[in-house]
Design a binder for these strands. Structure first.
Lengths: 236, 236
DNA sequence: TGGGTTATGTACGCTAGCGTGCCGACGCTT
DNA sequence: AAGCGTCGGCACGCTAGCGTACATAACCCA
């Protein structure tokens, strides 16, 4: 158990807990495989399980006006799905879609809430995560409003690369368009521009990050701001 | 004390607590007057006081790229300022600006945290509020991205009217432009359109809501969605 | 009463991104 | 090897909103 959690691909919310609490928590967890495209939660669903991704990652998406979609948050090994249960609310606010296949720890809602009560250290760490997520959500709102597609795409690819732990990403322009809330043709234009600058390469549903520092340069500052906020709050 | 809290203009997060908890909480509160334009918190400030508006209200604003601003949340008598302390994080994520002058209950950060520990009922209610605020923030992100200025302006006026408790609002187009993250001239166009439909009237910094149902019609659905969410979670 | 300040109306050219639709190229399947 | 579905490139006209700037009008104070 301990070995898994100390592995580079363990979930970061759990990995840094004191060993006693971690073992207790893990005893209630099972490891599940998530497949690309799985819908884990729909808005207003009752949350049955909480997920802690290991090498998978999940997109949280707002559905508005029946057919518009926009990704507003992402959870990979640095985060979790089902965070409203930390607040004691068992309702899902957003559409949760598996965006990167892989494994995750899963715990039932009732066991999760019991563990929260048992372990103030866990509770406090998850509260801090919630603060970070909320803050990032607010910053994202402004990012999505003010920044251009090309910079937003660059930021999105960086965030995805971090969570996928690979510089090869399986994504179509169509899918990216839904995430960013823009036209598919708009993504194509932005991708062409990034490719022309030698930052990425792509071919039929596979994007490769070629120049990560360059991509950070091309992205808006929101990417580094997000990273800095997480680091500041989660690793004091 | 009780009379104040049962008055129609008491803070709704506190008013519905059991009497014992409410009295204990109120003992640590003082009533303060907030003036239009006061900056109560800057991003990364340490939170010294938590505010529960009575007839005042506060805008929470993201500052990005040094000079762009965008309001992402509002707290009036239905809400509070300093909610990250509910999570045990004493850092302010956003710029908090007094947008409607009036009074508020104020409690020090340390007393607030003590009261949270003492009163699970209070803690739970504030957790629910945090869920609502987070959910509204996510919906707002999509609203700001997809909806047009005119509909967003209508929504914003309705939200402000609810919190001001008056159909007379003291606002310039300039100020509205900052809130909505658009040009002043864009606000003028939208205001002209709403006025032409007989929904509002205005004159040099004062806007009057003339036809509230019509304004709800003109606003995007986000307004009624927000109200419904608050009602569903906060008054079961 | 007059001069400055503030709020609003309006106009100009410009750009990002929209909705749509079509075409070609790739690659999987049979 | 042929056929079909998927993916990406591109082009069309269009719109919302931008940045900027200037003009009018109301109000405030001296």
């Amino acid at each position: 158990m301990t070995s898994i959690l100390h592995a580079p691909d363990a979930n970061q919310l759990l990995a840094e807990l004191p060993e006693v609490e971690r073992n207790a928590f893990m005893a209630d967890c099972e490891t599940v495989e998530l497949t690309f495209g799985d819908v884990l939660l729909q808005p207003t669903d009752t949350i049955a399980h909480v997920y802690f991704p290991i090498d998978s990652f999940i997109s949280m998406i707002v559905v508005i006006d029946n057919d518009s979609r926009l990704e507003v948050a992402m959870a990979g090994r640095e985060g979790m799905l089902g965070s409203s249960l930390i607040l004691g609310v068992a309702e899902a606010p957003l559409l949760a879609l598996v965006q990167g296949a892989g494994s995750a720890f899963r715990i039932s809602a009732t066991n999760f809430q019991r563990r929260l009560l048992d372990s103030p250290v866990l509770h406090q760490r998850l509260n801090q995560y919630l603060y970070v997520a909320m803050n990032q959500l607010a910053q994202s709102t402004a990012c999505i409003h003010f920044h251009q597609i090309e910079a937003r795409l660059a930021r999105w690819l960086l965030m995805t690369q971090d969570r996928a732990g690979s510089d090869q990403l399986q994504l179509t322009h169509e899918f990216l368009a839904m995430m960013l809330g823009v036209r598919r043709a708009g993504v194509t234009m932005a991708a062409i521009a990034l490719q022309a600058r030698g930052l990425i390469g792509y071919h039929r549903g596979a994007i490769t990050v070629l120049d990560r520092p360059g991509l950070i340069e091309a992205a808006c500052e929101c990417y580094v701001n997000d990273c800095a906020l997480y680091a500041r709050i989660m690793r004091p």
